[in-house]
C-alpha cells in the first residue's frame, strides 16, 4: 500500500458508515432444484470507479458494509455445501469491467485448514500499477468479508431487556393509569422508575442465561442448515439473518 494514487478527499460524515458495494458483490449460486441452491463462490465485479472507491476506503480505514443477507449466505457458504459437506474451500473471483467487456483477473481459494491459493491472470502483470491496485482491492474485499463472518452477539441484550421491561410495566400499569392520574400525577414517575429497575434486573438475568439461549438458537440454526429439507434450511437462514448483526 506504499503507492499513493489516492488524493485526499474531504471526509463526509456518512463515511463513518461502511462502504456499500452490495450491487458489485455477487454470490455465485446455482439452482439445483426448487428452493435449493449450490453456492460456488463469491464474485466481485469491479470497474474503474469502484476500484477508486475501494482504494479510498483502504486509505481511510473505512470498512466494507455487508448486508445481513450477504453475511448469512457467506456464513452458510463458509460452513456447508450441498449434501452436508464441510465446505472445503471458499472461492473469491474478481472481474474487471473495461470498455464494455469484463474479464476475470484474480481468483483466491481459502480453506479452513490453512491452504490458500491466489491466482492472477498473467497479462494483468504487464500493467504494474493497475495490477497492484486490483490485487490489493481483491485481497481487501476478501479480508473485509472474512473479518465480519464472526458472530458477535447473537442477543441484543439492551434492546431485549428494555423491550421486555416496557412490556411488563405497561401491562401492569395501564389498568391503574386513570386512578393514578386522578390521585397525583407525580405518581406516574413510579412506572418509569419501575421500568428502569426492571430493565436492569432483566439485563442481568438475560446475560446469565444468554449462553444457554445462544447455544439453543445456534443449535437450531445449524440443525436447520444440516437438514436436507429446503424449508428448514431457509428458516434457519432467516433466523440467523435476523439474530446476528
Amino acid at each position: 500500500m506504499g503507492h499513493n494514487f489516492y488524493r485526499q478527499h474531504s471526509q463526509k460524515a456518512s463515511d463513518r458508515d461502511g462502504l456499500n458495494l452490495e450491487p458489485y458483490i455477487k454470490v455465485d449460486k446455482e439452482k439445483i432444484a426448487r428452493k435449493r441452491f449450490l453456492i460456488h463462490g463469491i464474485r466481485f465485479n469491479l470497474d474503474k470507479d469502484i476500484l477508486q472507491k475501494i482504494q479510498q476506503a483502504q486509505h481511510t480505514g473505512r470498512h466494507l458494509h455487508i448486508s445481513r443477507e450477504l453475511l448469512t449466505d457467506l456464513r452458510y457458504y463458509a460452513l456447508l455445501e450441498e449434501d452436508n459437506h464441510l465446505q472445503s474451500g471458499l472461492t473469491f473471483c474478481t472481474y474487471y469491467l473495461r470498455s464494455g467487456s469484463e474479464e476475470a483477473l484474480l481468483r483466491s481459494v481459502i480453506s479452513a485448514d490453512g491452504d490458500i491459493f491466489h491466482q492472477i491472470k498473467s497479462d494483468c502483470l504487464e500493467r504494474p500499477n493497475f495490477c497492484r491496485r486490483i490485487a490489493s482491492a481483491h485481497y481487501w474485499l476478501i479480508e473485509q468479508l472474512m473479518s465480519q463472518l464472526r458472530l458477535r452477539t447473537l442477543l441484543r441484550l439492551n434492546q431485549l431487556s428494555w423491550g421486555l421491561s416496557l412490556l411488563i410495566v405497561a401491562a401492569t400499569v395501564i389498568p391503574f393509569l386513570w386512578p393514578l392520574m386522578a390521585a397525583n400525577p407525580w405518581l406516574l414517575l413510579a412506572p418509569v422508575v419501575m421500568c428502569w429497575l426492571l430493565q436492569v434486573v432483566l439485563k442481568r438475568l438475560l446475560r446469565l442465561l444468554s449462553p444457554t439461549i445462544t447455544r439453543w438458537a445456534l443449535r437450531r440454526v445449524l440443525s436447520g442448515w444440516l437438514s436436507r429439507k429446503p424449508l428448514q434450511k431457509n428458516i434457519a437462514k432467516g433466523i440467523l439473518a435476523w439474530l446476528a448483526p
Binding site: A78, M146, L218
Partner: peptide
C-alpha cells in the same frame, strides 16, 4: 510484491474464517 501482499492478506482472511468456526463450535 503481490505474493507478499497475498501472504499478509491471507493471514487476516484465514484468521477471520477460523475465528468464526471456533466461536461457532464453542457457542454451540
Amino acid at each position: 510484491q503481490i505474493h507478499r501482499d497475498g501472504v499478509i492478506a491471507g493471514q487476516k482472511q484465514w484468521r477471520g474464517l477460523l475465528e468464526f468456526i471456533i466461536d461457532l463450535v464453542q457457542a454451540t
